[in-house]
């Protein structure tokens, strides 16, 4: 890589993955259509993460599943709706040049093994294991809060692939750094932090909870400082590549996450007000910042905050 080439100002390395810029689509957003992935790539995105895929198709919860709360924050309990392994591997079979990371969700190591065996022949850059969805029982956070389950699942995926594995952690009942340590020791290469946080919203006119599932996950502006803290702690203590996620709505947020220690940054909820063009806008502005600060490459920002005591 030639750092003097202006096209490489924004390129980053995530374990074995080379990205043209640090922006990624967060899992759960858009995420089911190859045509949409291609459109996002045309909008200069670095990579996409798919919706979390399970062995069998899941319809998810009835609506309301996504609530705009105002102030750039959102509450969702979609219930991991997804087309399942068979339909989704067909969806991605035509993929040639889009950097796609498949998000996996399941309730046992067997399910994860089964999925990786099917997906591993596709042209994808790696996997993100969702161990932090806060609103579906026997999946996501319920497993993420159990270090032994995390260990077993990550090992099951590791045995079946040589591709990079990221584990998506959230703020649950065990310390996020400990959870990340278990995942890395079991063979994960990257940590994605953080997922949404358990939250609720009640309508005072009808006096009823709004989400059909009652409880969901909070995303957007409200959770950004928590995401920054988690990325900072994980990257500082474990010295592993971290993908920052949570409340990123501008190029400034991407920079902040990178200074905290993120090698790449996922963007999601903001699409509800900005549309897909946000990736083009953000990458353009990131380049301006890198040039203004006289950096050879944006990676020079990663973890600058670690040096302060």
């Amino acid at each position: 890589m030639n750092f003097n080439d202006k096209n490489y100002k924004l390129s980053v390395q995530l374990d074995k993955i080379h990205l043209r810029n640090p922006t990624m689509l967060a899992s759960g957003i858009l995420g089911i259509s190859q045509s949409i992935f291609e459109r996002l790539y045309d909008e200069n995105i670095g990579a996409v993460v798919t919706k979390s895929i399970s062995v069998n198709p899941m319809k998810g919860y009835p609506n309301p599943t996504i609530i705009p709360l105002g102030g750039g924050s959102y509450l969702n309990a979609v219930g991991l709706s997804n087309p399942g392994v068979a339909a989704f591997s067909k969806e991605l079979s035509e993929n040639r040049n889009i950097p796609i990371m498949i998000s996996l969700v399941g309730s046992s190591e067997k399910e994860f093994s089964k999925m990786v065996k099917v997906f591993d022949s596709l042209k994808i850059i790696g996997y993100e294991i969702n161990l932090s969805c806060p609103h579906v029982s026997k999946m996501g956070m319920e497993l993420g809060d159990d270090p032994e389950a995390v260990n077993k699942i990550v090992r099951a995926v590791r045995i079946n692939t040589n591709k990079p594995i990221s584990v998506k952690v959230g703020v649950g009942s065990i310390d996020v750094v400990e959870l990340a340590r278990v995942a890395i020791e079991a063979g994960a290469n990257i940590i994605t932090a953080i997922n949404t946080l358990r939250a609720m919203s009640i309508d005072i006119e009808t006096m009823m909870p709004v989400l059909s599932n009652l409880i969901g996950g909070l995303s957007g502006n409200a959770i950004k400082p928590i995401g920054i803290r988690c990325v900072y702690e994980i990257s500082k203590k474990l010295q592993v590549p971290v993908i920052g996620c949570g409340g990123v709505s501008s190029w400034q947020d991407v920079i902040e996450y990178m200074i905290a220690g993120a090698s790449a940054v996922q963007i999601g909820s903001i699409l509800g007000s900005s549309g897909l063009k946000i990736f083009t806008h953000i990458t353009k502005d990131l380049k301006k910042y890198v040039e203004k600060k006289g950096l050879r490459n944006i990676s020079e920002l990663i973890g600058i905050a670690h040096k302060y005591q």
Binding site: I36, K51, N63, T65, L271
Partner: peptide, 17 residues
């Protein structure tokens, strides 16, 4: 549709939402 605002992707039709 789930969200109506371009987040969930449920309503995708080729590359359009």
């Amino acid at each position: 549709m789930k969200c109506g605002i371009g987040i969930c992707g449920s309503c995708c039709l080729d590359s359009s939402l």
